[in-house]
Measured scan of single mutants.
Amino acid sequence: EDDHHMEFCRVCKDGGELLCCDTCPSSYHIHCLNPPLPEIPNGEWLCPRCTCP
């Protein structure tokens, strides 16, 4: 699979289990988001950068 997502968290710059945005290459740990997510959501997810007006 050709995955163009970042291999590190945009916030802390560390790797591991990352949540990938469905519209851009950004990846995040769920605990690095503000507010943090309790678990990885099902379905499409947009990062804070893509949901800002």
Rank of each mutant, 00 (worst) to 15 (best):
P25L: 08
P25A: 09
I30R: 12
D14L: 13
L46C: 14
G43W: 03
F8G: 14
F8C: 11
H5V: 08
D2T: 15
E17L: 03
P25W: 10
M6P: 02
I30G: 09
L37Y: 06
L33R: 01
D3S: 14
L19Y: 06
P38Q: 14
C52G: 15
C12M: 00
W45K: 03
C47D: 02
L37V: 10
T51I: 11
D14Q: 15
M6Q: 03
C52A: 10
P38G: 07
D22K: 15
S26N: 10
P25K: 10
C32K: 00
M6T: 13
W45P: 03
C52V: 13
C20S: 14
C20V: 11
G16M: 03
N34Q: 08
C47I: 02
E7G: 06
N34K: 14
V11Q: 11
G43N: 10
D3M: 15
N42F: 06
N42R: 12
Y28T: 03
H29G: 02
S26Q: 14
K13L: 08
L46Q: 12
P48S: 06
K13R: 10
S26R: 12
D14V: 10
E44C: 06
E1D: 02
C21K: 01
S26H: 13
T51C: 08
E17N: 10
C12R: 00
E39R: 10
L46K: 14
P38F: 08
N42Y: 07
K13P: 00
G16R: 04
E7H: 06
P36K: 14
D22A: 13
E17V: 06
E17W: 03
L46R: 12
R49E: 09
H4D: 15
L33G: 03
P35C: 04
S27P: 03
H29N: 03
R49C: 11
D3W: 15
H29S: 02
C20T: 15
K13W: 08
W45V: 04
T51A: 12
D22N: 10
P36L: 04
C50P: 01
P53H: 15
N34P: 06
R49Q: 13
E44P: 14
H4A: 08
I40P: 14
C32W: 00
P36V: 06
R10N: 12
H5Y: 14
C21Q: 01
C32D: 02
R10L: 12
E1M: 15
R10I: 12
E7K: 03
E7F: 12
P36W: 03
